[in-house]
Nucleic acid binder design. Sequence first.
DNA 1: ATCGCTCTAGAGGGATCGTTCTAGTAGCCT
DNA 2: AGGCTACTAGAACGATCCCTCTAGAGCGAT
Lengths: 199, 199
Amino acid sequence: MPAPPTATANTRDRLVATTAALFLHQGFTATGVGAITAGSGVPTGSLYHHFPGGKDELAAEALRVAGAGYGLLVGAVIDEAPDLATGIRESFPAAAAMLEASGYADACPIATVALEVASTNEPLRRVTHEVFESWATALSSRLEGAGLAVDRSRELALTYLAALEGGFLLCRAARSPEAMLAVGALVADAVDAALAEVR
Amino acid sequence: MPAPPTATANTRDRLVATTAALFLHQGFTATGVGAITAGSGVPTGSLYHHFPGGKDELAAEALRVAGAGYGLLVGAVIDEAPDLATGIRESFPAAAAMLEASGYADACPIATVALEVASTNEPLRRVTHEVFESWATALSSRLEGAGLAVDRSRELALTYLAALEGGFLLCRAARSPEAMLAVGALVADAVDAALAEVR
DNA sequence: ATCGCTCTAGAGGGATCGTTCTAGTAGCCT
DNA sequence: AGGCTACTAGAACGATCCCTCTAGAGCGAT
């Protein structure tokens, strides 16, 4: 195997990035292969060279990459606060602000696709689950690090994710940050209370 | 205008019901007009007679009808409990049980479409928002009836909906009721606490 | 009985879907 | 230099997309 020229990695990465961006705005089914190739400036043949499994394989990779990136973003927002409870509390208005700034377009890169494929495409459904699970374990381990029991940490982590995702859904439909702020305040209060007990 | 024969109403209703059922499982874009006509046994011409606006107009009607029906279903589950706090608490395991019983296919009839159209189809986005808003006001008025202030009632209603929707998303991806039960317990605790203050 | 309106019926069109296929280019190896 | 491999390039295919169109069935009114 010869050393891969940089153009190769760039082509692959551009395909993945373009696919993830299109999924974010319009979901899986509405994103055509033609739109991906046009948006990334990559010819059809290159796409099927890098992803012999076609649209599904590219989608899986885009979900994994976008999921990892978004997990890092949320983790960074939480970690830059002085303590975990504050970070969790501030992450909801931060998410609402980013959503609003993008015209209520840029929310969770996985959610739309996850609902579309949940009952129609088992391999992709599995990928969306793996992404959510990675987020849950990342947050859960932070809560454990703050002193919470394992079970309680996982419950709160799942609650946090459900609140964030539900908030995104309602806010995008309403084009208003209200729901995210409401649900965020309640989850943050619960996290505060849980962490106060073990302090 | 002559009295419309029953076949007419049946045709229209069958189209709407079939469309809503297909949206529930696979969303808006993946649901073709051909699948709707085949599933309802209605010819193409009849669809465009009843819905001159085509797929979008039929989708709007299906979302409104399914949204009203689902709102009544959730309201009934909540109201059959001895009191509001209990009804809200029990609605989460009930939702989780219904989801599990359907093989994690039958969840919110609006959510998938709402995310698909949020940034791509303004008329339909508006319809999804109206449905969510009708659910929020229905629950909010129940909370007001139990003695909560108007603002607090709306906050809790939006929180409830966000929790339910986020729970549906995570549970469908995971094919597990865990997230719905976790987020439901936390929201139910918060509702308990809020209602205990005013009792 | 004939007209007029609503609705059914499905063939067909133009566009786009995801994929396959053949050709050609670029760079490393011997 | 010649050959091999990785990759680019885009034309073309069959299937499916949403929609339009023509034809006729059913029924009440005059």
